[in-house]
Structure formats: structure tokens, C-alpha cells
Computed example of a mutant assay.
Amino acid sequence: MILVLTCLNDATADMVIGHLNKHDAVVARFDPGADFPADAELSAWFGRASPYGVLTTRSRRIVLEQVRAVYYRRPTPYLPDGPSQVERFAGTQARFGVGEVLAALPCPYVSHPWAITAAEHKPLQLATARRVGFEVPATLITNSVDDARAFADRHGPIVYKPLRATPYTGPDGEPATIWTAEVEPDDLDDTISRTAHLFQARVDKTADLRVTVVGERVFCVRIDSDLLDWRQDYDRLSYTVIEPPTGLADACHAYLGAFGLRFGAFDLALTRDGVPVFLECNPNGQWGWLEDATGLPIAAAIADLLLEEAP
């Protein structure tokens, strides 16, 4: 059995499940944050080298010892918005009960949630990327306005990036996103002292690269646009499938190996000299739209990886 942990309306996971079904794999889909405890029951015993027991959902009876691989995609968070004390307690127990029983299964993950969590932090991403050989823009994380101004003087033009995506409401009351944005010298004022900020030298780029790595397979796409942050408007993007620049595939594999990941979605800026510069790696990033736009067989590669790694 291959276990897919994701939310109900995950079209990207559907693509992978479709390929698994073509191989007649036994697939169970489960969203622990949403399905448990109302629509699922778990009993797991300990006393052997790994947990054993049964997870029962509305449509499946999952014997834990029979799970051979896990695809960890986008499960619902265990804690609801604005929880009461009782909900917070129950959600925490579910996370450290159900979530950690599943994390303790001795089978391959694509990728393990603990590895994904570690790899989501930008400071560790940047340090690891530099260590394995990527070019990395000069970067400063600070709440010192003096150091921010000195950094801008030395490395300008500079950009600002949030350290982590955070729910944000715009002036019109609609959900909004803080994109990578260029910072003018006059923007660097005393409000910097209120929290940590990430400033980075702006890369003089000709294009962006999205490199999706699935196990040993590397899918490299050049993204052309007139945007600083291409995620702002997908309608203004054009895509070209290319071979990875020399050394890039090895650096990507070394990076993922450092975190114990089997998947990564790398974002890089391509300089005028053809050098890919590391910006970030999403350890559980989206790729479905890219397969639709380019025809790259990313879903099939993930399904193949799950089938290959299942002992």
C-alpha cells in the first residue's frame, strides 16, 4: 500500500494518484488534520522496532505494517483557526499522536515531514546552498536600520523578502501576498527595528529557472518574464524546457541529500553570464501547473519513485 497524505482538494496529488492507479498500486488517501478523529480511527501499538496497528478511514482499512511508501503533500493543519483551549489541546494531541505515528513508519517518504520542516527555513537554506556549491546572493537578516543601510550602500540595489509566508489581508480586505520587492534607500527607516527582515542583493538576471528534482530525475525550465518575482502573474510567463546548466544537477542533489529530501522545487535566477544563482528551494513546492504548461512528466516521476522505493 502507498499512503498519500494530503487535503481533499489537492489536484496535484490527484495527478500522482492517477499514475499510481495505472500501475495497479494499492493507494490510500488520508488527511489527518481534517479526517481525524471525526472520520478516522487509529490504534497503534509499540513494542517492536516500528509501530503496528490499524488506521481506519471511511473508505480504507490501513494496516500500518503494510504501508510501503508515503507521499507527503499538503495535509490540513491540525489546529483550526482561532481554536478554543479544548480544540487546541485536541489538535496538539492529534498532531503528536496520529502525525508522529505516521512519521515513525519505517518506509520511504517523498518527503518525510521532519525533513520538509527543517528545509523550509530560509537561513538554513542559504547556508546549505552555499556549502554545496551554489552561487548565493549577498544576504542580510537584521532588525538594525544602520546595518540595513550599510548593506544597501554596499550591495544595492537590494530586495526585501519575507522570511516565511504569513496570512496577510490587503487594504481591500482580501487575502494578499507579500512578493519579493526592490527596496529604495528611503524605505529603510526605524520600522526595521520591529522584527527580523531579510534583505538581499538584487540579481541582474536575464531569466529565472524552476528546477524540479524527483529522486535522481531533474526537470529544468527557463521562465521568461519582465517581473522581479515571477509568481505575481503567471499570465506573463513563458516557459522553455532546457538542460540544466553544468553542475546544477549535482548541486541540487547535494542540497537535497543534506536535508534527507527526495523532492525539491528550486528557484534560481539566471545571470547575463549564464550562471544560476540560488534563491530558494521549496521542499514541497507546487509543480502541477508546470507539467500542464510544458508536458514534463513530473507526476509520473513521483509515482515511479514511490513504486521504486517501496520495498
Rank of each mutant, 00 (worst) to 15 (best):
C220T: 04
A115M: 07
P106M: 07
F266H: 13
L79H: 10
T139W: 07
D189Y: 09
D224N: 15
D273L: 13
D226Q: 14
P185V: 12
Y168T: 14
V275T: 15
D204K: 12
T240F: 02
F36T: 08
D229K: 05
P106K: 04
G156T: 00
L198R: 02
E308G: 05
T142M: 08
F199A: 08
A103M: 15
Q66K: 11
D14K: 10
I116Y: 05
D153W: 10
V275G: 07
A127M: 08
I178C: 03
L296Q: 09
D39P: 00
E243P: 03
D233S: 15
P137E: 07
A152Y: 10
W230D: 03
H121C: 03
Y239I: 02
D81P: 15
V132K: 11
A152F: 09
F134D: 09
H253Q: 03
T240Y: 01
S193W: 10
A293R: 05
A150H: 03
G91V: 07
T195D: 13
A176S: 12
N284A: 14
P311C: 06
R164G: 00
H197I: 04
A201V: 04
T169E: 12
A269K: 09
A196Q: 06
E174T: 11
E100D: 11
V67N: 10
D224A: 14
G91P: 01
F46A: 13
T177F: 08
P123Y: 04
K22V: 13
T56Q: 08
L279F: 13
L228Q: 13
R194G: 12
A254W: 13
K122Y: 04
A181N: 01
L79K: 11
R29C: 12
A150T: 09
D304G: 12
E309H: 10
A104C: 13
G97A: 02
G133R: 02
D226A: 13
L3Y: 11
P123T: 12
D39K: 14
C107A: 08
L5R: 09
D233L: 11
V136H: 07
D292A: 14
E216W: 07
A40Q: 11
R202T: 07
V26E: 12
I2T: 10
R210V: 04
L20A: 03
G97K: 00
D39H: 15
K161Y: 03
S193D: 10
D24W: 05
V136C: 00
A11F: 12
P297I: 01
D146W: 00
R217K: 15
F46Y: 06
A129S: 04
N143V: 10
G274T: 11
Q125Y: 02
R149N: 03
R29K: 09
R68C: 15
D35E: 14
Q286C: 07
Y234N: 01
V136T: 14
C220Q: 04
L261F: 06
